[in-house]
């Protein structure tokens, strides 16, 4: 029987959750015996090659591309897991949520009002190339965009949390994390 496939992605995240996945240390050898990786930065596969058993989502949705990738994961994965605080509540990127988008852009790019950084931008241009994904009005937690089956909180979730959850799911057991593996920091 073919091994079940796992896909991972980092949306508006910092790749810290992926680092935490690598932090399972030598258990990663056991993991590659258990699963094949599909679309993931781990193996640099850009597009889904087929149906996946588990999708791990790091980061929330900050722009339209994040939403498209997340919807693509939902279509291809049997079980979708929000990994880490950014996927669950938007995290650090969501600190902009109480600020209007225009003010965010001005803060980042405008030299007009002396709010922005010392960039050379005499025309006060806000980047608007069609190649650049449009920012959403705010950063959305993944479960407010698509159906998410499990949440693994943490910043990042401890390697043991990821390991326990993955092994449980791959062996058709319920994900029951002990007290010390549910942490928000």
């Amino acid at each position: 029987m073919a091994k079940p496939k796992v896909a991972t992605t980092s949306l508006a995240g910092c790749f810290g959750c992926h680092m935490s996945l690598l932090d399972i240390d030598d258990r990663i050898l056991k993991l590659v015996e258990l699963v094949d990786f599909d679309k993931s930065p781990v193996d640099d596969i850009k597009e889904f090659t087929g149906r996946c058993a588990v999708g791990l989502i790091e980061g929330g949705c900050a722009n339209e591309e994040n939403v498209r990738v997340l919807q693509d994961f939902r279509r291809h994965c049997d079980i979708l897991i929000s990994v880490g605080d950014c996927a669950i509540n938007g995290g650090i990127p969501a600190m902009r949520n109480a600020v209007p988008l225009k003010e965010c852009f001005q803060e980042a790019y405008s030299t007009d009002n002396r709010l922005g950084p010392a960039v050379y931008n005499p025309d006060n241009q806000i980047p608007n190339d069609p190649e650049i994904p449009l920012l959403l009005d705010k950063v959305y937690p993944c479960h407010e965009v698509v159906k998410i089956d499990y949440h693994l909180p943490g910043c990042p979730p401890p390697a043991d949390t990821l390991w326990e959850a993955l092994v449980a799911l791959l062996s058709d057991k319920p994900v029951a994390l002990p007290y010390e593996l549910i942490k928000y920091d």
Binding site: I88, N89, G90, A94, A98, P141, E144, H151, I182
Partner: peptide, 10 residues
């Protein structure tokens, strides 16, 4: 609680 069940208000 792994995630709240209500939408965030920010």
């Amino acid at each position: 609680i792994a995630a709240p069940r209500f939408p965030y208000l920010f």
